[in-house]
Amino acid sequence: MSTRDKGILWLLLAALPVALMLALMSGPVSVNIVPALLQGWHSDSSDAVILWQLRMPRALLAMLVGAALGIGGAAMQGMLRNPLAEPALLGVSSGAALAAILLLYYGLAWQSGWLLPVLAIAGALLAVSCVWLLAGRGASASRLVLAGVAINAFLSALMALALNYAPSMFAMQEIVFWMLGSFANRGWDQLLLALPFILIGALLLYFSRNYLRSLSLGEETAVSLGFGGRRYPLLVLFGIAFAVGGSVAVAGTIGFVGLVVPHLMRPLVGQDPGRLLWASALAGALLLSLADVLVLNVVGTQELRIGAVTAFIGAPFFFWLIVSARRGMAL
């Protein structure tokens, strides 16, 4: 790691506690942060309860999910050799979303707090497995994308059907809100549930960093450098499924983070797909936690959904990409 990379690593690491403090200060009631922090976990003063039971898990969850989406996006772009790829392309998000929607649809989600996230992760893994099987043995990147588009289209059709025949207005509202993503009312339970899946995903992606690097020169060269066979693509696909599936399971679908974050980091840490993994994880954590601070500070009768905020960040980003491409800068 070069000195410059180390500098950026430390800068991102230093920015995270700042974002955390901002998140802890944000909310409908004003809380004296420092005393509440010092009172500790077990105190039952209202400030401490708000801070430790409501704001802290929410802020940490936003970071964790941001990191998962960031690393998932970087891995996806590396594997498909395409800067416009994002995890949703392989049906990870829609697989998780459909599983959750079906649960909400049948009103089963409230039977147990664990049921929805666990089934959402299973949905993500199932969707990726379908994409993998459909693409077939030794599939090229373009065939994987094509299979992903096909599976995605099918899952979207099923979701539309579920919305169409939603049993009640409440169920429909729940489904729509869930599709827009949110960190509202998320506690330690959700954080602890998502954490192992996201860690497994991140670990699988970490092990495939050299494969992603070798793919910079194309699949043929990657094979000649010793990264042939089915093992490596599987490692990446399931790494993405675990990380992104885990985050969709607790926070709903949040778009654009996986697409935008690697782009933001490339000018800073360079184009190396291996280095981009950790950089995108840190930057994703930072971006999503700041986006959630924004959500918490927007005044209104209804809570703004985080998915809407990230879409507002993502869309202008696309405009900027087009403008810079037109000016002849590399995409």
Binding site: L217, G218, L225, F227, R266, G270, D272
Partner: peptide, 19 residues
């Protein structure tokens, strides 16, 4: 062999050391 990313030439060369 087309590089997918606009990496520095020395970084491309270093990929040969991956194995």
């Amino acid at each position: 062999e087309y590089p997918a990313w606009s990496m520095a030439a020395e970084d491309l060369v270093a990929l040969g050391l991956l194995p």
